[in-house]
């Protein structure tokens, strides 16, 4: 087993928001005491619904959020949260981002070759000829033609634009690439192309991915391990097979039960677990477990104390009071009893 290349320890991000009344400052905590690890050459997916803080967590790791970040983000054992100046540049060389929307992540007034070489210009001092050579190679690597490099972003399709975004992220030869919903803005056929491209590049360049997504199908296809987030907290963190075969947290279970299946027998047997209601108000979070208001198996104790993220055997960690040492889903037991 390889070592952790990227590790978040007790990472929190909060944004100051102006409260009613003078002088008071309220904070919106988007990411609350989150920890996870990504092993070298592997892919960790962070999944969760909108507003769960997954994108904020990812951007905090890339040092791109304006909010207050506390905790540690270790890249090769070195905390990157306090870095500035040259060291920050060095970190940016090693950690790059592929953004969600290929229509807004490319500067409409720049030629695509300039977009791709921007990280090279700002972060490295390679000679001009070498930069040009790298750009040409990258165009080839992502499946674009070098003749297209003088064009402007609006002359490309969505999939091609995302390829440009990928080429940009690759230009400094980073070790870690954060894919922030990198395919969710694309249609399904193009999604598959881009995902396959990402996998090929992972192999060719030895990349480590932090893959932010809400699409469990995509996650299953791409990832080695998964962290599930809900309201700024990681509720479950496990290997892919573990998580998909034996989801422990009620939220994860509900999430997986919502994935549509093409297999008719599976579809017959599938029991949809519904979670009623809306996520809680982020300014007024419940005292205990954050999922308590929607949890189908919540008990009295769940209202009082927030469950810690605990190891339940193997590298399977879950934050739920109802999961015992035998690592069985509280919902699963319930379902088995009824059947």
């Amino acid at each position: 087993m390889s070592d952790a290349l990227l590790e978040a320890r007790n990472l929190s991000v909060r944004f100051p928001v102006r409260a009613r009344g003078w002088g008071k400052k309220a904070y919106l905590t988007a990411v609350d005491d989150v920890s996870f690890t990504v092993k070298k050459g592997q892919t960790l997916a962070i999944v969760g619904e909108s507003g769960s803080g997954k994108t904020t967590a990812a951007l905090a790791i890339a040092r791109l959020v304006a909010g207050e970040t506390t905790g540690e983000v270790l890249l090769d054992g070195r905390d990157i949260v306090p870095l500035t100046g040259e060291q920050l540049k060095d970190m940016r060389r090693r950690v790059q981002v592929i953004f969600q929307d290929p229509y807004s992540s490319l500067n409409p007034r720049a030629r695509v070759e300039d977009i791709v070489r921007e990280p090279l210009d700002n972060l490295t001092d390679k000679p001009e000829a070498e930069k040009r050579q790298i750009v040409d190679q990258l165009f080839e690597a992502v499946g674009l033609r070098p003749e297209q490099k003088r064009l402007f972003p609006h002359q490309f399709s969505g999939g091609q634009r995302q390829r440009i975004g990928i080429a940009r992220a690759l230009s400094t030869r980073p070790e870690v690439i954060i894919c922030d919903e990198a395919v969710s803005a694309l249609d399904v056929a193009v999604q598959a192309q881009i995902l396959n491209l990402l996998r090929r590049l992972q192999k060719d360049f030895g990349l480590t991915y932090l893959f932010i997504s809400h699409d469990l199908g995509v996650v299953q296809h791409m990832c080695d391990s998964v962290a599930v987030m809900y309201m700024g907290k990681v509720v479950e963190h496990a290997d892919r097979m573990d998580l998909f075969n034996n989801p422990l947290h009620p939220y994860t279970t509900a999430l997986l039960s919502a994935v549509p299946s093409v297999d008719p027998t599976l579809r017959e047997n599938a029991r949809r677990i519904l979670i009623p209601g809306d996520p809680p108000d982020p300014f007024n979070l419940p005292k205990g477990c954050r999922f308590v208001s929607r949890c189908p198996v919540a008990q009295a104790g769940c209202h009082d104390a927030a469950p810690p993220l605990e190891d339940k055997g193997g590298p399977h960690r879950v934050a739920c009071h109802l999961v015992g040492a035998e690592a069985q889903s509280p919902l699963g037991v319930d379902a088995a009893a009824r059947a």
Binding site: L59, R92, F99, N107, E118, P119, N122, R168
Partner: peptide, 8 residues
């Protein structure tokens, strides 16, 4: 944000 990530 992308330009920021690119070190601008």
């Amino acid at each position: 944000t992308a330009s920021r990530a690119a070190g601008a």
